[in-house]
């Protein structure tokens, strides 16, 4: 089982790598570390403490901390959605801005009954609303490559931005078997 100290050190190292800081208030930081540890103990990965996870790795992978949305959020708002990672200006001002949710709603909604659809398909609709549309938890993975730097990733969607060269999602293209084997 991971310790609080390990979770903290990992976050500190990651902040340093990317030139970020961790949230400036020690009591808040402690709560973030505890939340991340709880999720890692519960799911086996440190899912975002501020978002509702499913427990299915493939469905939650975009919100495993540091999430897919951290870098664009820090670039735009000076901090991530949770306000765990901040840039220098926010760190020094200690003023934590509000950050709107960048994660697409379709992905958020999979945490509201998606697993029910998988385990008990016949009961799925009994108490559900007209607005809630649990989606399948089956995740179809594909190979994607970044047209800018060549980074290759095997997952459902390309990352929000390329973790290597920071190219936008639109720069990713699917690698098809035809391309793989002809080349």
């Amino acid at each position: 089982m991971i310790t609080l100290d390990q979770v903290r050190k990992r976050a500190e190292a990651d902040a340093k790598t990317y030139g970020y800081y961790l949230t400036p208030q020690p009591d808040l930081l402690q709560m973030f570390i505890e939340g991340l540890k709880t999720n890692e103990d519960r799911y086996g990965y440190a899912s975002c403490p501020c978002r509702l996870a499913t427990g299915n790795f493939e469905v939650d992978r975009d919100i495993i901390c540091p999430c897919d949305y951290r870098d664009p959020d820090v670039a735009q708002y000076g901090t991530c959605y949770c306000r765990l990672y901040v840039n220098k200006a926010v760190f020094e001002s200690q003023n934590l801005p509000e950050v709107p949710e960048r994660r697409p709603i379709e992905k958020q909604e999979r945490a509201y009954g998606a697993a029910a659809a998988k385990t008990a398909p016949t009961q799925e609709k009994t108490e559900t609303s007209t607005t809630a549309q649990p989606q399948k938890t089956e995740v179809k993975k594909k190979l994607w490559y970044c047209k800018q730097c060549g980074y290759v990733v095997y997952r459902e969607d390309p990352p929000y931005i390329c973790p290597i060269c920071k190219a936008k999602k639109e720069f990713f293209a699917e690698i098809t078997a035809g391309v793989l084997f002809k080349g």
Binding site: E109, Y112, G113, A116, A117, E127, S129, T131, A132, P134
Partner: peptide, 14 residues
């Protein structure tokens, strides 16, 4: 559980 989560979804979205 999922059933209750679905109710939460309904309340907040509605």
């Amino acid at each position: 559980d999922d059933k209750e989560r679905n109710q939460v979804h309904e309340v907040i979205r509605s």
